[in-house]
Design a binder for these strands. Structure first.
Lengths: 106, 106
DNA sequence: TTGACAAGTGACCAAACAGTCACATATCAT
DNA sequence: ATGATATGTGACTGTTTGGTCACTTGTCAA
């Protein structure tokens, strides 16, 4: 589970999270299309972020002619969520379930 | 939701995640006790990490005499999980919704 | 085949960060 | 009081990271 660190690090940047959000809305976008979502940064900055997302396996890419399409890969996020975050997020779920049950039985 | 960024950044470091894990096992530990969990680093490094976790609101502290106790606060993790990670970690839900919509419009 | 267009590379800089250390403060036990 | 213990602070350093730029490579269309 050493790639979990790469995932956490990749998610630590707001620009990268924004790029994932953009791909969540519309998958398969090109570099240029994604650059339009981050107008305050040059193409090179965006490309660096995309490279990090790809090396963390959070996105996959495919060449299409002279363009490059980017696709979201939610699997690493799911794994990190299951194996690490869920450990902390679960008690809350239990609390909600308990509250719901309490309301139901009340 | 600007503190979400602090949470993501705080979780981006393996040492800090290890400290949270240590507190998950045993809550309320002192600085020294936590230092024992990270023997490859000096106390000062550990204290810096603890300070970051605290400023991200992932832990709370309480002075107890000349010691300081550290307590896990899972709420920020839960919020991040619910509002951001869950979006990606539940593609199955989305798939179901999409399927339902498709059936509806068909 | 020429030119416009999309993406890639390596060098480069500034800012942020991880980590350490000398030193300081506060607290407990004797 | 005195010394040992627990934590705190500010300065300092090496490394990583975010971002830009000049220049290159590959691809499409006229």
């Amino acid at each position: 589970m050493d790639d979990a660190d790469a995932v956490f690090k990749a998610l630590a940047d707001a620009t990268r999270r924004g790029l994932l959000d953009a791909l969540f809305v519309a998958d398969g976008q090109t570099v240029q299309a994604l650059c339009r979502k981050v107008p305050e940064m040059t193409r090179f900055g965006v490309m660096k972020h995309l490279a990090q997302l790809e090396s963390a396996n959070l996105i996959t890419t495919r060449r299409a002619g002279r363009t490059k399409q980017h696709f979201l890969n939610p699997v690493p996020i799911q794994q990190v969520s299951d194996r690490w975050i869920g450990k902390y997020a679960r008690p809350f779920t239990h609390a909600l379930v308990d509250l719901r049950d309490e309301l139901h039985t009340a």
